[in-house]
Amino acid sequence: MVFISIIIPTLNEEQYIGHLLQFLQKHPQQSHFEVIVVDGGSIDQTKEIVKTFNVTLHEADKASRAHQMNEGARLASGDILYFVHADTQLVDSFVNDIQSSIEQGIKSGCYRFKFKDPKNPLLHINGFFTRFPFKWCRGGDQTLFISKADFDTIGGFNERYVIMEDYDMLDRLEKHNIPFNVLPKSVKVSARKYNENSYLKVQIANLKAMKMYKRGEDPEKIREYYCGALDGKYKQDHLFLGN
């Protein structure tokens, strides 16, 4: 059985992080994984909540998901790195699912996703398409596992990408011919970005950000556009921290 290092980047996640850590603390296979929370400078109760659990809390020197996840990977002792967002609800079988994928020789992958209690029925369409192997259907919300050896081979996350770091990772996995597997189960993710904005507004912002990424535009410019296009938590956190 492989040992998994679960790496969770956080920034002002007091509403969600406790639920995720409680799930992991009660998991019947917890002897097969460790949990590393890498905080990017939260000003709410995130760090205080994390400290009530038996996990590793590392405080990064800057708030940037790529940087925080690389910091977590440097601390990891697992054979497999599993990157998870704080507001994601994992499937109970994630340890066995990842183990099975590794045994099949597929050492990187993610899950499909569904939104938790979506207010807009159109969000079911977004979730439906994550079963297909299209890169535009992917994203960090679906969680990402990768062998530590392969992660080191491709150089980890490119910290130049202050946004779209997950898509850059997928592109580099493909360039290195590292097989990627979409597991046939769904994690559940928060719909907060859609609840704080309209469905159309988020879809347009996502589409334009992807086009900018595909054109090779500066990630700082993409992030500046995305922050300006959306309201709510994402904009507040990134503008406050200047990142």
Results as ranks from 00 to 15, higher is better:
Met1Trp: 01
Met1Asp: 03
Val2Leu: 04
Phe3Cys: 00
Ile4Thr: 00
Ile4His: 04
Ile6Lys: 08
Ile7Gln: 12
Pro9Met: 11
Pro9Leu: 13
Thr10Trp: 15
Thr10Leu: 15
Asn12Pro: 08
Leu20Met: 09
Leu21Ile: 08
Phe23Val: 01
Phe23Tyr: 14
His27Tyr: 14
Gln29His: 11
Phe33Ser: 00
Glu34Arg: 01
Val38Ile: 12
Gly41Gln: 08
Ile49Arg: 14
Lys51Gln: 15
Asp61Ala: 05
Lys62Trp: 00
Lys62Arg: 15
Lys62Met: 15
Ala63Lys: 05
Arg65Gly: 02
Asn70His: 07
Glu71Tyr: 02
Ala73Lys: 02
Arg74Trp: 08
Leu75Asn: 02
Leu81Thr: 02
Phe83Lys: 05
Phe83His: 08
Ala86Tyr: 08
Ala86Thr: 05
Ala86Leu: 11
Asp87Gly: 11
Asp92His: 15
Ser93Val: 04
Val95Lys: 04
Gln99Ala: 07
Gln104Met: 12
Ser108Phe: 01
Arg112His: 11
Arg112Asn: 11
Phe115Met: 04
Lys119Ile: 14
Leu123Ala: 10
Gly127His: 10
Phe129Ser: 05
Pro133Thr: 09
Lys135Asp: 02
Trp136Asp: 11
Cys137Ala: 14
Gly139Pro: 04
Gly140Cys: 12
Gln142Ala: 14
Thr143Trp: 10
Thr143Gly: 08
Thr143Arg: 04
Thr143Asp: 11
Thr143Phe: 12
Lys148Arg: 13
Lys148Trp: 00
Phe151Ala: 02
Ile154Cys: 03
Phe157Lys: 03
Glu159Val: 08
Ile163Trp: 09
Glu165Lys: 05
Glu165Cys: 07
Glu165Met: 04
Met169Lys: 04
His176Gln: 06
His176Cys: 01
Val182Phe: 01
Val182Met: 05
Pro184Tyr: 08
Ser186Tyr: 10
Ser186Met: 05
Ser190Phe: 12
Arg192Thr: 13
Glu196Cys: 06
Leu200Met: 13
Ile204Ser: 09
Ala205Thr: 02
Ala205Phe: 09
Lys208Leu: 12
Ala209Arg: 13
Tyr213Met: 01
Lys214Met: 13
Glu220Met: 07
Glu220His: 15
Lys221Asp: 09
Glu224Gly: 06
Cys227Ala: 07
Cys227His: 02
Ala229Ile: 07
Asp231Val: 00
Asp231Gln: 14
Gly232Asp: 01
Gly232Tyr: 05
Tyr234Gly: 01
Lys235Met: 07
Phe240Gln: 08
Phe240Ala: 15
